[in-house]
């Protein structure tokens, strides 16, 4: 495969550009469903695009005493990681033969980098509120990562493979009881990974005025917003791929439609959780993840070992 084609894949389809556009459309779905839940009309279809483009024309304020390089580059790490994770998942859908063994582990690592970039950016900005947001983000990362990896382990045990393609070809994990428990755990962890209510303590507009993002303005803030939208697209796609066989592109139109519906259904579940749950304090969130959620994930792993 030649280099130009590879670069095209990374930057356009199914990499950066595709993920960005799909992510912004997903964030419109999120805002529209939220509006309908609150009996409102909601924003127009292009609103997320306007929001990001507007930030691109605004001034970038760099507060005094900031670690300039880190402050400005942190958003880019997150965006690159989200785009790469999406690229790996979509390549497993589209060109199944060419994925490598262990890509699930690479994707798991890539999906943590957006959170790390938020932490770095918030600490670099030297703002007390941003530091609080960053430290909360860090605690949340430590809290949800363990149950999330345990939940991902369940389909891996079912299929005896750490290659995403093998998981797509095998029977979906949710057909077994252990898979159902693991799927529920993974959905809860996804909510925290996206820092949506009830796990939005890191940015808590009402108490931390935007938390980790408080000092960001203009294009860097736009990149952060774009990264959030891209994660809102990538995370549900990853879970659909791991637990429900993803989207099959080689069997005609109906399975594609079914796959997209699975994905949209999962997004709506995320949005409904975010609209019906109150925010947890950070200590409550950590206790919740290290207590009941990890326990449930462990039960699922043991059940998967026993073949249930």
């Amino acid at each position: 495969m030649d280099l130009g084609y590879l670069i095209l894949q990374v930057l356009v389809f199914p990499g950066l550009l595709f993920t960005a556009v799909a992510g912004l459309i997903t964030s419109w779905v999120d805002r529209k469903v939220t509006a309908r839940v609150q009996m409102r009309v909601g924003p127009p279809f292009l609103q997320p695009f306007y929001d990001v483009l507007k930030l691109m024309i605004k001034e970038t304020c760099i507060p005094a005493g900031t670690a300039r390089g880190l402050f400005l580059s942190a958003p880019l790490f997150g965006m690159a990681a989200a785009a790469l994770a999406s690229l790996l998942i979509w390549r497993a859908f589209l060109v199944p033969g060419q994925t490598f063994s262990g890509d699930i582990i690479v994707i798991l690592y890539l999906l943590t980098i957006p959170a790390v970039s938020v932490i770095l950016g918030s600490f670099a900005s030297q703002n007390p509120l941003a530091s609080l947001g960053g430290s909360r983000e860090m605690k949340l990362l430590l809290a949800y990562e363990l149950p999330f990896v345990l939940a991902i382990l369940v389909p891996v045990i079912h299929t005896h493979s750490i290659r995403l393609f093998d998981l797509l070809a095998a029977a979906p994990a949710v057909y077994k009881p252990s898979g159902i428990i693991a799927f529920a755990v993974a959905i809860i962890c996804m909510q925290a990974k996206l820092t949506l209510v009830p796990f939005d303590a890191p940015e808590a507009e009402t108490e931390l005025t935007g938390g980790a993002y408080v000092e960001y303005s203009g294009p860097p803030l736009g990149v952060f917003k774009l990264t959030r939208a891209m994660m809102l697209f990538t995370m549900p796609i990853f879970l659909v791929a791991i637990f429900c066989n993803g989207i099959a592109f080689d069997k005609g139109a109906l399975p594609i439609l079914l796959g997209v519906l699975k994905y949209l259904g999962l997004v709506v579940v995320v949005v409904l959780i975010r609209n019906t749950a109150p925010r947890l304090r950070i200590d409550q969130a950590v206790k919740f993840f290290w207590g009941p959620v990890t326990l449930a994930a462990l039960v699922a792993v043991i059940a998967a070992f026993l073949g249930w």
Partner: peptide, 16 residues
């Protein structure tokens, strides 16, 4: 009044 229809949202930080 649903001002999000016109793209108007409230933000917490003056930088935004």
């Amino acid at each position: 009044y649903d001002l999000e229809r016109f793209g108007i949202t409230l933000v917490g930080s003056v930088r935004h």
